[in-house]
């Protein structure tokens, strides 16, 4: 199995603020979760979709230098599922549309349980 790396690790390495923001937009739009998922795209596909040359260069540089990966040399016209981290968590109860509740429990109050304790006079600093 190919080991996958979370995409946020790559995003954090981008030093330029505007490039990082553009890369985040790309990740958020395409739903990319892993570095390998990003490398599945071709440069041409990203160019065709308005990504700026500076961001593309930075992403390509990081893929190569930090992860030993390259953009997909083949043209991609649609998304393919990216490898995702192995999951051991399977929801036990499927979502039931009836339970659409805006709810409910607030964070605990600091004052929720104040003990009533008397006879502690000797612990007074006077």
């Amino acid at each position: 199995m190919t080991q996958t790396q979370p995409i946020f690790g790559l995003l954090r390495r981008i030093e330029d603020d505007s490039i990082r923001r553009e890369a985040l937009t790309l990740v958020g739009y395409l739903g990319i979760q892993t570095v390998q998922g990003l490398a599945n795209y071709s440069k041409q596909y990203l160019v065709n979709n308005d990504i700026t040359p500076e961001t593309l260069d930075e992403l390509e540089r990081l893929l190569t230098a930090e992860y030993n990966l390259n953009f997909n040399p083949q043209e991609r016209t649609k998304q393919i599922p990216e490898p995702t981290p192995t999951s051991t968590y399977h929801p036990r109860v499927p979502y039931q549309p009836r339970s659409v509740r805006a709810s409910g429990a607030p964070p605990p109050s600091i004052l929720e349980s104040v003990p009533h304790h008397f006879g502690l006079g000797k612990y007074l600093k006077r």
Binding site: G28, L30, K78
Partner: peptide, 14 residues
Amino acid sequence: MTFSTIIGSGILSK
């Protein structure tokens, strides 16, 4: 950058 042409399934596109 607008990404208006990207057919994404990521959360931002929605």
